[in-house]
């Protein structure tokens, strides 16, 4: 535990970068770990909540993510960026949780790594076939936010992850690629495909004309 006998300075742990905190934690300064947990509380929980679509599951995965970070801290290489690493751990934990809950859509992080955009589009089309939003359901939902959430929820996991990371978490293509372990080009094509499918599922259903 750090001894504090001097006049407090502004450069406290809370002002340190993620990488400095991780290095300090690795060196035995346990408070640094708590600062990291607090720093990512809102951001990482938000990611997991959106991706998993379940608050309770997101809470469990959040806790397990930091447990893994704690356990893997000895493997941390000084200077390595913590944020993408943390998201990678969180994403793997989330996929495992979905798999345990039997809710995984059978698409791993590595899937379609080698497939071209066309191949992805085909599998996407088949994935979404027959799964567009029920018009009555959407019509009854007054809140636009709920409609958006529901539409995102319907995306296959591998598209949803890219969309959440790039749009809601504000990551760059390169960072999303690092987190998911896929090429940048695949990130781009998945994001594009995700948006096209969102547009499709959120468009009003064509009117039915009686003969």
């Amino acid at each position: 535990m750090e001894s504090e006998q001097d006049v407090p300075k502004l450069d406290t742990l809370t002002g340190r970068s993620d990488e400095e905190l991780m290095a300090r934690f690795q060196a035995g300064e346990s408070q640094a770990f708590g600062v990291l947990v607090r720093r990512y509380e809102r951001e990482l929980y938000g990611y997991l909540r959106r991706y998993l679509g379940d608050g309770s599951l997101a809470e469990d995965v959040f806790q397990n993510t930091f447990l893994q970070l704690h356990l893997k801290s000895a493997q941390y290489e000084v200077g390595r960026r913590v944020r993408p690493w943390l998201y990678t751990i969180a994403t793997h934990q989330a996929v495992d949780a979905l798999r345990r809950n039997g809710r995984h859509q059978a698409v791993s992080l590595e899937q379609t790594r080698d497939a071209g955009p066309d191949g992805e589009a085909d599998s996407l089309a088949s994935n979404l076939e027959g799964r567009s939003l029920d018009p009555f359901e959407t019509a009854s939902g007054n809140e636009q936010a709920e409609r958006v959430r529901a539409a995102v929820e319907l995306l296959p996991a591998f598209l949803k992850q890219v969309l959440i990371l790039a749009y809601y978490q504000g990551m760059k293509y390169r960072e999303v690629a690092d987190v998911m372990g896929i090429p940048v080009g695949t990130v781009k094509s998945r994001l594009h495909a995700a948006l096209m499918k969102l547009q499709e599922s959120m468009s009003p259903a064509p009117a039915v004309h009686e003969a």
């Binding site: 929980y45 608050g55 806790q63 936010a145 958006v148």
Partner: peptide, 20 residues
């Protein structure tokens, strides 16, 4: 339309404590 759901979900109370 995505901006309509841009607010990050609120973490549950005590999440940090529970995690530690």
């Amino acid at each position: 339309p995505l901006a309509d759901d841009a607010d990050a979900p609120e973490p549950p109370p005590g999440l940090v404590n529970h995690t530690l």
